[in-house]
Design a protein around this nucleic acid. Structure first.
Lengths: 155, 155
DNA sequence: GCTGATCGTCAGGACGGCTGACCATCAGTC
DNA sequence: GACTGATGGTCAGCCGTCCTGACGATCAGC
């Protein structure tokens, strides 16, 4: 399992760097959240549900950027852990309103602390200013329109 | 498919940011490399083989950070496209030396230009200094020992 | 000529995510 | 009120990526 140091021809590639940074983060995240019985994706769902009351499954999926069919499985497992509950919307009986249970809200709170601590450790190799900068950079990369979606100036 | 703007509760999470930045990059990469009939992973293999002559499959896998069983499939497809060729090592007949074919070297050259152009577009939302900084940050995150592997000071 | 380790290969499974179809429900129309 | 099209949730099935476990071939040491 001795992993070689990655050669320069790889560490100069954005794809390689993002992939492996993400893999490392995922591992650390799994380790940090294991005691709470959830993974990073599930925690994100709890956080979104906590931030916006009265979300339907589809609305939550939209905010999370996942497919609605993926959302079904996600809510299934969280409901199995009794961290969220489904209830049909009286206004529109097609919709499932998903809410945190009290236990879900507590779990969110606890696991969120663990996640923040994990991120702090993950960024420990960086100077504080680099850590801040990284967040800003990632946010603009994720928020900015994708290059393939940018329309050329209509001159 | 109208994707909602991600709420603040997500854009403050490192995991969400890395995942979606990586997803975007993967999409752009696939689009940019499609004309060359390879994907980003295959291009990385070609680049590693070009940089180090006489690599066995296992050595190449080690440098790429992939499993040796994954390497088999990777070399299979590249060999099917006649971009690389296997040849048993005379020194150690257990080993497959993997080499670029002339056509593979040409493809690498062409696709590499496309990749660089793609990265340039991907980072277009950033200032030049942020783009440079991003590379340095990612490199230190990927190169530094993972937090879970760091041994506490023996004081 | 043994024995244990190494390399490549393959089958199989885990996991995440998608497509396509289905049913229930809603909103608009006649 | 009945019909029609769109919407939300669900499920089966598929695909891509990656790993584990097993196997045969080969090597190095004795």
């Amino acid at each position: 399992m001795a992993r070689d140091a990655p050669p320069e021809v790889l560490t100069s590639r954005l794809g390689y760097l993002f992939k492996h940074a993400y893999l490392r983060l995922t591992e650390e995240s799994a380790r940090a959240l294991a005691p709470y019985g959830i993974d990073g994706r599930e925690l994100a769902v709890l956080a979104v549900l906590d931030a916006h009351a009265e979300l339907s499954q589809l609305e939550a999926a939209g905010r999370l950027g996942v497919d609605r069919t993926t959302m079904v499985a996600l809510v299934d497992t969280l409901e199995g852990k009794e961290l969220v509950e489904r209830r049909r919307s009286p206004q529109d009986r097609r919709k499932n309103i998903v809410r945190l249970t009290p236990s879900g809200r507590q779990r969110l709170h606890d696991a969120e602390s663990a996640r923040q601590e994990m991120e702090r450790r993950f960024l420990a190799a960086l100077s504080p200013s680099d850590a801040t900068r990284l967040f800003a950079i990632l946010q603009s990369l994720v928020t900015a329109p994708a290059p393939s979606e940018r329309v050329p100036d209509a001159t």
